[in-house]
Write a protein that binds this DNA or RNA. Structure first.
Lengths: 345, 345
DNA sequence: GGAGCAATGCTCTAATTGAGCATTAGCCGT
DNA sequence: ACGGCTAATGCTCAATTAGAGCATTGCTCC
């Protein structure tokens, strides 16, 4: 296993920036999509800002990373969230680092370039602990086309798909490097047109396609030339500052995928819950498509929960057993999770 | 869905660094784990450096991100790799952004703090295209305990597990915040001790545990106080500079997981291949545990490949049909991949 | 020409998954 | 106190999928 020139003294390798022109430097932004489920609604912790150019004023909690102060990125993130909202969340995971020029509403080149690191945090709202700043809002407010709880959302057929079809019919502005995927095919993959399936995990892909097609307010902010074709578009969700809606889309994709192979759903639950409450929470995240009896069989046989011995009576029907998360499952199985399939109801 | 104080004029939100002490700034390092499979061996593109403090001299291709020059992180990454190795890879995905102080071999506080973004790139080595700088090395050189191709690796029982057990028997140095997981339990989850299963995807978890236990050279570099108990440890793999071995561990975890639900394995294959060659490549990445007939049934029935019509004769046995990747499968199924289970042979 | 070695085709069984039926047990209004 | 309502819960059944193994075929090499 030895290839190429295994040189004793390798050729000098450059590491200094390829051009040296006193760059204005890079700043790292830490951004948290903090998710909870409250009364069967998936909600997100929002901080209000002053309006920016397109009128967007909603933002995730965020702030710059300053390494002297915080030993790790995550510690910095928690500090900013506490500072801005008063919240201490438990579970957190890194999502993605975005560095595209122009997606951070910086059309001019003054000021440092901002690279955004997005995080997903999960928490539970009890009725007691919401003494904090910031507002909980449904995540579907920002992504109405992802809301399939009352069937196929009307905005898809009324607004999005007609416009996307028109966009797909046009050739790309410039040739795409590499192996190009036809616009029609991307529509099919992500929006399920033409016999394709709707995959609830592809939230980010759909958002990026809408951005590219110029249907998202943030795209018009970042590429003002798009505003020329500025016919009113209708309600395509509330815009957010910077690339925060992209981070939220990443968060939604991640949690919808992860629920299926890691027991993260329990981060959103109170300590004790009924199986139906658990199912409602899963459905709030994924969309409603679970067979109740099978869900219960799945969760119980996977050893994810154990009965507390208590019952909950005010269910509206027969009293339900209360369960708690069985943490030991983490030790027993490599990938425990609510293995629901994207199938129907 | 309205909580807390939905203030008309929100309280001022701080965004400036919490302390203002003229930080030395942050630099972003772009690092690429470039993986191929050559003669059934998973290999990695390595660049040699001058030795650092612990004698580590192997590194991934890397360089700083300079936003003025490169519009996106990925463009910057490709430029550095081309510059240092002459390679243009196709597929690439971002892995993770590491920002811990001290893991980048910066015990002193001079110089900028480096935040490393790791990437996984996949490519194929034909016999023609290896006219480049850099060396391909087996990834098992850096992770001998991950090499189960000839059965359970001896280094596990001979060296790692005895030392890890001793470590697990000690209490943690300082209490861990949050919900602590017992060291024994972590060993069980990640190393399959005491009846637990070995999960080939948990490469990063194992590396981090070994690092924490001080068994990895890089840990001794970063925390010199560990070197006190500096009994010779034996071959725990070649060290790398900075946090590059951590990035490689992340890459191995990612590709071992991703192969199962996305057709990324084909990025490692030549255009035409036999099903057994495909199987060998999957096994190079995952470890050998596939039932041949079932593998073939799986791959064919999933529509991942189509016959080219050609045959390959010099197989050592009966001639084999040649196949190619069916790209259309991407349009047909939401998550196509080689859905192999972690089961036995 | 026969042995050796993979490739390939099939079968069988055990698990898992998807759906639906039936029964049970509190709550509520009368 | 009672019947109706709503869920919770227990089971059954068929369809699919996954895990293993047997049998045959068709080149290459001695």
């Amino acid at each position: 296993m030895k290839h190429a020139l295994d040189i004793a003294k390798p050729p000098a390798v450059r590491r200094d920036p390829l051009t040296r022109n006193e760059s204005p430097g890079v700043e790292i932004g830490l951004n948290a999509a903090i998710v909870a489920v409250h009364k069967d609604e998936p909600v997100l912790l929002i901080v209000r800002e002053d309006q920016d150019a397109i009128g967007a004023s909603d933002s995730l909690p965020y702030g710059p990373f300053s390494p002297l102060e915080h030993r790790t990125l995550e510690i910095g993130l928690r500090a900013w969230v506490r500072e801005q909202t008063g919240i201490d969340f438990g579970y957190v995971e890194q999502l993605y680092t975005f560095g595209d020029r122009g997606r951070h509403a910086q059309v001019d080149d003054r000021g440092p370039h901002v690279v955004s690191i997005g995080y997903l945090a999960l928490t539970h709202i009890d009725d007691g602990n919401d003494h904090h700043r910031g507002t909980w809002r449904s995540w579907y407010q920002y992504f109405p086309w992802e809301d399939w709880r009352r069937g196929r959302p009307a905005v898809l057929d009324d607004i999005l798909l007609p416009r996307l079809s028109a966009w797909a019919a046009q050739p790309p502005l410039r040739p795409v490097p590499g192996r190009p995927v036809r616009r029609e095919d991307r529509l099919r993959m992500y929006f399920g047109t033409d016999g394709g399936a709707w995959d609830e995990e592809k939230v980010l892909d759909r958002y990026e396609l809408l951005y590219e097609a110029g249907l998202i307010d943030e795209a018009r902010r970042d590429r003002p030339e798009l505003s020329v074709m500025d016919t009113p578009i209708g309600d395509l969700g509330t815009a957010m500052i910077y690339d925060h809606r992209r981070i939220l889309a990443t968060a939604m994709s991640r949690i919808r995928a992860k629920i299926k192979y890691r027991p993260v759903i329990f981060e959103l639950m109170p300590p004790d819950f009924t199986l139906f409450e658990l199912q409602k929470t899963v459905e709030a995240i994924l969309g409603p498509h679970l067979h109740k009896q099978n869900f219960r069989r799945l969760v119980e046989s996977a050893g994810l929960v154990e009965p507390t011995g208590e019952m909950k009576t005010r269910t509206g029907g027969r009293p339900a057993k209360l369960f708690r998360f069985r943490r030991e499952v983490l030790l027993e199985r490599p990938a425990p999770g609510v293995r629901v399939k994207p199938g129907r109801a």
